[in-house]
Design a protein around this nucleic acid. Structure first.
Length: 939
RNA sequence: GCCUCGGUGGCGGAACUGGUAGACGCGCUGGAUUCAAAAUCCAGUUCUUUCGGGAGUGUGGGUUCGAUUCCCACCCGAGGUACCA
């Protein structure tokens, strides 16, 4: 009887969905909870390819394993369904993004179901559904209503801040705020009108409006965050990015920089990913130093990580964008400076990166005064100094910093060496070691460490500076000029943003005619006929009367893609709750994610933003924990194996791989991988039918075969290298696909897709089936298993259990294969062996396992059967079976992996044929026995 | 440049705290079965060899009775990041 995977898989898919087999228990289950989360997919138009399910298969195996282990498992799935591709499709076709998104979701669901995932679909979430984004908008309102108090080191309601202002002004308030907020006293605050107060408060809110330089992508018509830009071009589409000033909503993630950094210690995430977040946060410890400017009432504030080199300063450099530059430029230098500023503006980000070796800058004509020596220090501007890092100004110490050194050499500025016994003839000395500082007044003869401490102390005493910590992490821009995103729940009154309230939510996306920006450049929401907070919904009270006529314009920007994904994992806990984002009972029961699986490409985007929101909601005591994911695993990508053919320029002649060396210049053309067989041979007829351009093609072949050139790259529709999981499911079945994807290699690793090994896994499953069936007969017996068989079983249980716990699923598959090979060699048909083995296999090949389980006569699904436990007594082995190997003349070793007593070991060794030959009846001089391992015997 | 991870047969990859390197699968070779094929089963498969061996986990050193594993230096690859003061 052949294993008929088609009907069997279909049967169990239906059974599972009918019986809601994978529904997590309600939050009052007595079982311990386990929450396994996958990063939810964006439902794109091209469907799933074999790379997508890799992580889902791994998490599904673990989820099923945990169910067998007696856990109440929450394993949900949903869709990150707001996003750019649906919107661009809408622009091209006029179809509403909701419609295409819905279609794509249905396709995804079909594909996911085919693979036998044990998702609890009753908890599905979609970020684009109003029931969901209602709460995303609500969290935005919470951020709007809070500020970050540095003393309490947490977010606090803004009304508390207002009380403080009313009593004390803002001078001694230790809160995170925007740059450029002026100090005021309590009486000044109380004299301000509401408009001015609101404006000031905006500078403290955790989400705030500000005029910022943003990464503008004109092709996409929107602003992009730093992590959405790769090598100076947009991640999606690869379009050019320019800098543009716009008023944007931002999130004050910088307030949480220190906590985001420190709490990495608390979570079990991959070290490389933590390192990426650490670099992205980019903490540097140093000092601010104030320099008076000669002839002006202005001070330059610089940030430096090397205040110990303060006496090596020979010039200063300011970022050209700084407002201060215009103020302090001497009249006869104005022309040069203006020209330079214009020049910098023109150069795009990309050029600035690619031309890093070009040293440019101009002198302003002004001088700063050294705080200690009073020396005159020339002030330059240069675009190697960035306006938005630190203070946008550096004190240049050419002897201790390579860029300052190059700048000084280029413009023939003086270089002062303040390091004892160090040559700086060729390059700057940037090491921070025990080198002694020289020629530096009170720092002379001190080491780096001591000088740092001393200089900060003196700077602070004299008021010349202050020890400071700086972060590279920028506040996250939150406005997108797009249609297909969450509307920001804000209306404007006198140009000041006002929040809606929870009762007003969800603020639904309006219908629009066009998805492009309006003719006057406003975002697509500007196309909505009545996008305003009007009298129907909000009654405005003026002078004690309800004013039914006042209409306030609503915010036109929408939220970025990461908004919904920053908290969706809590919604799964209680996805139907209409009163609250997640009910108390559910969140206190499930608390956090025990295991999170997803790609490392989200390291500095989603995985950082979601930690930020988590901490914020934790501060508000809305969530029970400070970090939401205890453990995270990055699954690697499955790469495509693209195929190329080569054409002679200007002709229709294509050259086979073996003949390429005969030609110098050939054009490479991608062809669809489905036209190529396992031996890289091209299906020529297929190619001619595939695209018009190949109709008349001619081929130069060797041995009547045309070979393509293979190249490994990311799997994508545009590269014609996509392998669809449906094809594999049709041909081999879902269980084979699941096991094969695991067998391909460790889950963390990226690897190219390659079907050549799939038959091995398929053979295994058929072989497994044949343990139960022989010529259409069920051959399992109730006969007792013998010791040898039990040994195989218990070794396999031990191996599989520890490998699953370590997420080493590739070796699990190997262990199954070994086990089944041995059992079929022994012709073992004992149910005592085959029953537990089937439970063992069930996480990997669930359809097959269920089917066999039923044929054993079980009425219930296998999913909650207890996982077998290995019995160590079956693992005790006969010491005589261990090979003894001799190395050297004086000693030999015998390998043992088990718990034999020392006397038993000695006995076994002495019994060994080869040992006795060597010993000739003499006792060894010395026994060195390492438990469970090896023994060394000296004689 | 800096940070992180990696380098093992023809290929994907095993090897737990140092202890039989190459598990398992693919591919390849031979055999059984078959009219034949598919499927299945069995045996072999790191390289080299004068069939005794010898060499071997990127390269060169070191520690050790013993190193793929630990230490030092270098080479190569992948990912991240970059005028970050």
């Amino acid at each position: 009887m052949v294993y008929d995977f088609r009907n069997i898989e279909k049967k169990w898919r239906t059974y599972w969905s009918k019986n809601q087999t994978f529904k997590a228990d309600d939050s009052n289950s007595s079982k311990p909870k386990y929450y396994i989360l996958d990063m939810f997919p964006y439902p794109s138009g091209s469907g799933l390819h074999v790379g997508h399910p890799l992580g889902y298969i791994a998490s599904d195996i673990f989820a099923r394993y945990k169910r067998h282990k007696g856990y109440n498992v929450l394993h949900p799935q949903g869709y990150d369904s707001f996003g750019l591709p649906a919107e661009q499709y809408a622009i091209q076709t006029g179809q509403h993004p909701a419609k295409t998104t819905e279609e794509n979701i249905n396709r995804y669901r079909d594909q996911l179901d085919r693979m036998g995932f044990s998702f609890d679909w009753s908890r599905e979430v979609r970020t684009s559904s109003p029931d969901f984004y209602k709460w995303t908008q609500w969290i935005f309102l919470l951020l709007f209503d809070h500020y970050y108090c540095r003393d309490a080191d947490k977010a606090i309601h803004i009304t508390k801040l207002v009380l403080l202002f009313e009593k004390y002004g803002n001078k001694n308030i230790n809160a995170v705020c925007s740059k450029g907020i002026k100090t005021f006293t309590a009486s000044e605050w109380n004299s301000y009108n509401q408009h001015k107060k609101n404006k000031i408060l905006l500078g403290y809110r955790l989400t705030y409006l500000s005029e910022t330089e943003v990464n503008w992508c004109s092709q996409l018509g929107t602003v992009l965050a730093n992590d959405e830009i790769i090598n100076g071009v947009s991640e999606r589409g690869g379009y050019a990015i320019t800098k543009k000033k716009m008023t944007q909503w931002s999130m004050r993630i910088g307030a949480y920089a220190e906590r985001l950094l420190n709490d990495l210690e608390l979570i079990d995430w991959p070290e490389s990913l933590k390192e990426m977040q650490r670099n992205w946060i980019g903490k540097s410890i140093g000092a601010k130093v104030f320099f008076q400017i000669q002839d002006y009432e202005e001070t330059i504030e610089v940030f430096t990580t090397r205040p110990d080199t303060l006496f090596g300063v020979t010039f200063m450099t300011l970022a050209p964008e700084l407002d201060l530059v215009k103020k302090i430029t001497k009249s006869n230098y104005k022309k040069n400076v203006e020209a330079y500023i214009q020049e910098t503006k023109k150069r795009s980000q990309r050029e600035r990166i690619s031309e890093t070796k070009n040293i440019t800058g101009v002198f302003t004509g002004s001088y700063a005064l050294h705080p200690f020596t009073g020396e005159r220090i020339p002030i330059w501007i240069g675009d190697y100094v960035l306006a938005d890092y630190g203070t946008g100004a550096v004190m240049a110490v050419p002897c201790g910093d390579q860029r300052d050194y190059d700048f000084a050499k280029h413009f023939k500025l003086p270089i002062k060496n303040i390091f004892k016994d160090v040559s700086i003839d060729k390059k700057a000395y940037t090491e921070k070691n025990d080198t002694i500082i020289d020629d530096s007044d009170f720092l002379t003869n001190l080491s780096y460490k001591d000088a740092m401490k001393k200089v900060i102390k003196v700077l602070e005493e004299k008021g010349y500076g202050k020890g400071t910590i700086n972060y590279r992490l920028r506040d996250a821009i939150f406005s997108r000029q797009r249609y297909w995103g969450e509307p920001i729940p804000i209306y404007y009154k006198d140009n000041i943003p006002h929040p809606l309230t929870l009762n007003d939510l969800p603020l639904m996306l309006p219908k629009v005619e066009k998805y492009l920006p309006t003719p006057d450049g406003a975002p697509p929401l500007g196309n909505a006929s009545r996008w305003a907070w009007d009298t129907i919904k909000k009654e405005v009270v003026e002078n004690g009367k309800i004013n039914h006529k006042t209409v306030f314009p609503l915010e036109l920007n929408t939220m970025p893609g990461w908004a919904g994904s920053s908290w969706y994992f809590y919604r799964y806990m209680d996805s139907k709750n209409s009163k609250y984002f997640v009910g108390d009972k559910a969140k206190n029961y499930w608390r956090d994610v025990d295991l999170y699986l997803g790609g490392s490409e989200h390291a500095t985007g989603h995985l950082l933003y979601s930690r930020f929101w988590q901490k914020f909601l934790f501060d508000l005591e809305l969530l029970p924990v400070n970090e939401y994911a205890k453990k995270l695993i990055n699954q690697g990508m499955i790469l495509g194996n693209s195929a190329f053919i080569y054409r002679r320029p200007g002709t229709q002649i294509y050259v086979s791989k073996d003949l390429l060396k005969n030609y110098d210049s050939l054009e490479a053309i991608r062809v669809d991988v489905s036209l190529v067989n396992a031996y890289d041979e091209l299906n020529i007829e297929g190619l001619k039918d595939w695209q018009e351009q190949f109709k008349e093609a001619d081929f130069e072949m060797k041995d009547e075969k045309f070979k393509v050139v293979r190249e490994v790259e990311k799997m994508s529709k545009s590269k014609f290298n996509v392998i669809n999981p449906d094809e594999i499911c049709d041909k081999y079945g879902a269980d084979t696909l699941r096991m094969y994807e695991m067998f391909l290699g460790p889950i963390e690793q990226s690897k190219p897709w390659n079907t050549s090994g799939i038959s091995g896994v398929n053979n295994f499953l058929n072989k497994y089936w044949r343990l139960f069936y022989k010529e259409n007969n069920w051959v399992v017996t109730e006969k007792k298993a013998n010791n040898n068989e039990l040994k195989i079983l218990h070794e396999t249980i031990k191996k599989i259990t520890s490998d699953i716990e370590n997420f080493s699923f590739n070796t699990c598959v190997s262990s199954f294969m070994i086990c089944v090979n041995e059992l079929s060699r022994l012709d073992c048909r004992s149910s005592e062996i085959l029953r537990p083995l089937t439970i063992l296999l069930s996480p990997f090949a669930p359809h097959l396992a269920e089917e066999i389980w039923e044929r054993f006569g079980n009425k219930k699904s296998i999913v909650n059967e207890p996982f077998p436990i290995s019995n160590p007594s079956y693992l005790v082995e006969d010491a005589k079976n261990y090979p003894v190997s001799f190395n050297g003349k004086m000693r030999f070793t015998i390998l043992l992996s088990l718990t034999l007593k020392n006397d038993e070991i000695k006995h076994a060794v002495m019994e060994d044929k080869r040992t006795s030959e060597y010993l000739h009846g003499h006792e060894p001089k010395k026994w060195i026995i390492i438990p469970n391992k090896i023994i060394n015997i000296v004689f």
